[in-house]
Amino acid sequence: MKDDAPLVYSTEGGRITPPKEAISRPKGDGIVRLSRQTSGRKGKGVCIITGLDLEDTALSQLAAELKKKCGCGGTVSEGSIEIQGDKRDFLKNYLEGKGFHVKLAGG
């Protein structure tokens, strides 16, 4: 092998991205808050569930369970669960049945 041959491939450098840091969410006060939001959604309302003191995997499992029970879509975003539609009463009763202390927040 020649010493003057150009380097074709190397695992030492390149576009190696550092591992993602875990997003640290502030600790809640033990109260789950349900609010309804329509701003920035062209009038379509969503229920936002905040204050859940769960890990990311447990949070996404709870979101999937709520979406199945409500029969609608939703997502997990920055430590909160968004459920499409105005289903605050159902969500409040369901979460209280699971042992959470729930308050309705906002309008």
Rank of each mutant, 00 (worst) to 15 (best):
Gln84Asn: 08
Gly51Ala: 08
Arg15Ser: 12
Lys27Leu: 12
Ala58Met: 09
Leu54Ala: 06
Leu66Lys: 03
Lys87Tyr: 12
Ile31Lys: 06
Leu66Thr: 03
Val32Thr: 02
Thr57Ala: 15
Asp53Thr: 03
Glu65Tyr: 12
Leu62Thr: 01
Glu55Trp: 09
Lys2Ile: 02
Pro18Trp: 10
Asp56Ser: 15
Lys68Phe: 13
Pro6Ala: 14
Asp4Ile: 10
Asp29Ile: 08
Gln61Gly: 01
Lys67Gln: 13
Glu21Pro: 01
Tyr9Pro: 00
Glu78Asp: 15
Ile23Ser: 04
Gly51Asn: 01
Val76Leu: 14
Lys69Arg: 12
Ile16Asn: 09
Gly28Phe: 07
Leu104His: 01
Glu12Ala: 14
Gly99Lys: 00
Phe100Arg: 00
Phe90Leu: 15
Pro19Thr: 02
Gly45Leu: 03
Met1Lys: 04
Val8Thr: 09
Leu66Glu: 04
Lys103Gln: 02
Lys98Arg: 11
Lys69Trp: 11
Gly45His: 00
Asp3Pro: 01
Gly14Leu: 10
Ala105Lys: 04
Gly51Pro: 00
Glu12Gln: 12
Gly45Arg: 00
Leu95Gln: 05
Thr17Gly: 03
Ala5His: 10
Ile31Asn: 03
Asp3Ala: 10
Cys70Met: 14
Asp53Met: 09
Gln37Asp: 10
Ser24Tyr: 08
Tyr9Gln: 07
Val46Ala: 12
Leu59His: 10
Gly73Leu: 11
Gly28Lys: 00
Asp53Gly: 02
Glu65Gln: 09
Leu54Gly: 06
Lys87Met: 10
Lys2Val: 01
Gly97Ala: 04
Ser60Ile: 07
Ile16Pro: 00
Asp4Ser: 14
Ala22Arg: 02
Thr57Cys: 11
Pro19Ile: 06
Ser60Ala: 13
Ser10Tyr: 08
Gly71Leu: 12
Glu96Gln: 13
